[in-house]
Design a protein around this nucleic acid. Structure first.
Length: 269
DNA sequence: AGGGCAACCCGGACGC
DNA sequence: TGCGTCCGGGTTGCCC
């Protein structure tokens, strides 16, 4: 499911495609995906220029010239496609933003949404999110302060958006593997070296995954060769039974805190 | 505080 | 091809 690297990739690519362009048409096929009446929604969005696209946690923010913001969360299975009508994947489209004869399709929005909000409302909406793990200000000291008194498991802590923002089920496993630590390990039982290692793995894995365009393999547009290249770099996620890249042992799949979890029982401790 | 769990939602995958 | 069934999974909220 789309997490920080996927949303960051979307941000970069969409900026190139629709940054500075004007939304000519809006099509709402699923009213539950928006937050106000469709006619009001269209009123606020149509004929507006996209001034900037920003990512916060797993959200994308489309800043419009009238000051309103389109706040997107893809939740589970949501994805986007940009292009001409004949290029779009054969999937149900919940919302469509048009830019002349090119369209931005929002697909698989089941629990996901695209809300139109004032800047103040967006701020309130995002107020409980923890720090951005790739932010330059997210230092080792910040991290050590953050995990002080934390007694939960590594995995549940990493996916907690109030603790750190943008990490989900996939990257929590990737980070745990990279740090040689089991996802079930308790934060407060890690020694100093392991805490430093965990911090470094958070930074490394998220950075690398973003460089490779995340792991979701659906291209954002025709001839998009950026999106999803991390898919074949993944260490453990969805690799049950395959050999561990470090020690060769078979990757284990298990349920932890009602989430599917992948790890190597030989070289993670 | 942290763990457990239900509810939200429905398209797509899968079985026959 | 066609129809019925089931499941995924981030987030919220509630309880213990």
């Amino acid at each position: 499911m789309p997490e920080l690297p996927e949303m960051e990739t979307y941000k970069t690519l969409l900026h190139q495609k629709i940054g500075g362009r004007t939304i000519t048409d809006v099509l709402i096929n699923r009213e539950k995906s928006i937050n106000i009446r469709p006619d009001e929604f269209i009123n606020r969005v149509q004929n507006q220029e996209i001034k900037a696209i920003e990512r916060r946690a797993k959200h994308l923010l489309f800043h419009l010239e009238n000051g309103y913001v389109l706040l997107l969360h893809l939740m589970l299975g949501g994805l986007m496609f940009y292009g001409k009508e004949e290029e779009k994947p054969d999937r149900t489209v919940q919302i469509q933003l048009s830019f002349g004869d090119q369209h931005l399709y929002f697909i698989g929005l089941r629990l996901g949404y695209l809300h139109i909000l004032s800047q103040k409302e967006v701020e309130q909406e995002l107020t409980d999110l923890g720090p951005e793990p790739l932010d330059v200000n997210f230092s080792l000291d910040t991290f050590l302060n953050l995990i002080e008194d934390r007694r939960g498991r590594i995995k549940t802590t990493l996916v907690n958006q109030e603790f750190l923002s943008g990490i989900g089920n996939c990257y929590s496993d990737e980070i745990a593997w990279h740090s040689h630590l089991l996802p079930e390990r308790k934060m407060n039982e890690l020694n100093d070296n392991q805490k430093v290692q965990l911090y470094q793995s958070i930074r490394f894995v998220l950075h690398q995954a973003t460089q490779y365009g995340g792991y979701m393999d659906m291209a954002l547009f025709k001839e998009d060769n950026k999106t999803g290249n991390y898919n074949n770099k993944m260490y453990v996620y969805d690799r049950e039974g395959e050999g561990c890249q470090r020690c060769g042992a078979a990757i284990i799949k298990e349920e932890l805190s009602s989430r599917k979890t992948f790890y190597c029982k030989e070289c993670q401790t």
